[in-house]
Design a protein around this nucleic acid. Structure first.
Lengths: 247, 247
DNA sequence: CGCTTCTTTGAGCAGCATCAATACTGGTGG
DNA sequence: CCACCAGTATTGATGCTGCTCAAAGAAGCG
């Protein structure tokens, strides 16, 4: 456990300022939020379905994801989260969690007491708006994923999520030069997109063979933006970004 | 066009009180919101993708839906809306619409100026919480639909949406005795669940043959709740209702 | 270097899409 | 009152997309 500090909260501030404009007092109030920090190993739960959390989590480093578990091991990943995200901000107003939250990679995670966030919201309406807006963008991404899963081909879905994750990472300074971290397994991608891991593998193979993305390595390399955008019918409006990037 | 009145706003109040608790002053402030009312015919747009609305819509009677349109006539319906719902509440904080909103049946629709809602939010924090909460439940339903489309069979998805719509209608007093209005076409259901209209027809036929729902008529009749719940793995937690029904 | 996790590849198949034709239903006007 | 019409529901035939099962490479890690 650590204690609150401006440095620790930098990812959150950068994220909020990539989607909204904060007044100086609001920014300072966010930076002064009490936060405890923990390092959580990869593939561990941060909160479970049916929990009644008293804190919200901020991802400071690493990737997290939210998911629902069904019968017979079926899993639906609902979202991926990168530094600056507050994946369970909705728990501020929905007492019971309707899904689980866990790490994908090892993460540094900050815990913000609901009480402090509620007080922030009442005292700084523009901070409240920024947080509300964050949850609305979250919902907008759900709509886009739903559309992909319901009505796009496997190739389109995968092209689309590549575009999305690159832009999300770029907005917080973690992607540059058409290259970004890609710590998720093909099974993760499948569970996010409603596909089997085997089929994800084959489609990624196709995209590589067609020169849209680079060969397998630690980072994902995007070789042909136009083709990916076209294949995934990608239109970034739904990300509702205020500015292009923070880096 | 009409003008604001308590009677017109009753569906909105009933909906908000089914998901949150309002203080007396907040309830009165909601009832005093300025609203213009229009009757909109079935299958007409209320707002379009890329619009920058200055009002939010409240459904007063009838059903509405939100959808995204893709190439080659593909369509994804994102949600269905019944009286009391504010389908585009997110436009209060997201300037550009990322999808369209239209009527399913003929509707009476109320239009609430963003300005009035923003003022309400600042003056009555518990009204703001209720509205924020409403958008969070919206998002929760998106997560559930995403899970269904991604990981449930066609039979499960259809069973699930039947359970969901019945409960939503029941919460605002529009469903009783395992019977509820069902004004959507099989193509609508398909576009909501990522299925073809033909397959929806076959699955509905199965559900009827197995005695889970009644024969085709104006209303949908639920004959076997337990079987539908099991088939759709339906767990209403995600609807985050505060009380069982208003009727 | 041995273990586990992840990726890759092959073979066979099932769920659901597509195309196409036929019935039904409610609403309309003569 | 009935014929007509548009939209919707139903049914059949066919085949593609993506699933399942299975096994063999790669890669990271202690």
């Amino acid at each position: 456990m650590g204690s609150a500090s401006n440095a620790e909260l930098a990812p959150l501030l950068r994220k909020l300022e990539s989607i909204a404009t904060l007044s100086d007092p609001a920014r300072e109030a966010v930076a002064a939020l009490p936060m405890t920090v923990r390092v959580v190993e990869a593939r561990h739960d941060l909160a479970r379905d049916k929990d009644r959390p008293t804190h919200c989590c901020v991802v400071l480093t690493g990737w997290a994801c939210r998911c629902k578990l069904l019968d017979e091991g079926r899993r639906q990943i609902l979202s991926f989260h990168v530094p600056g995200d507050i994946p369970d901000l909705q728990s501020l107003h929905l007492k019971v969690l309707d899904h689980s939250l866990g790490t994908v990679t090892q993460c540094r995670v900050g815990f913000l007491p609901h009480e402090a966030l509620r007080e922030l919201s009442v005292r700084f309406p523009d901070a409240a708006s920024a947080l509300w807006r964050d949850t609305l963008i979250d919902a907008s991404i759900f709509r886009e994923w739903m559309t992909g899963i319901g009505r796009r081909t496997a190739h389109g879905r995968i092209a689309h999520i590549i575009c999305e994750m690159y832009l999300k990472l770029h907005a917080v300074g973690l992607a540059e030069n058409d290259r970004c971290p890609w710590p998720v397994t093909q099974t993760d991608i499948g569970d996010a997109l409603g596909l089997s891991n085997v089929h994800v593998n084959r489609v990624l193979g196709d995209l590589r063979a067609q020169g849209l993305i680079g060969p397998r390595e630690r980072d994902l390399v995007i070789l042909d933006w136009d083709a990916l955008r076209a294949l995934g019918e990608f239109d970034e409006t739904y990300l509702h970004m205020e500015r292009k990037a923070a880096a």
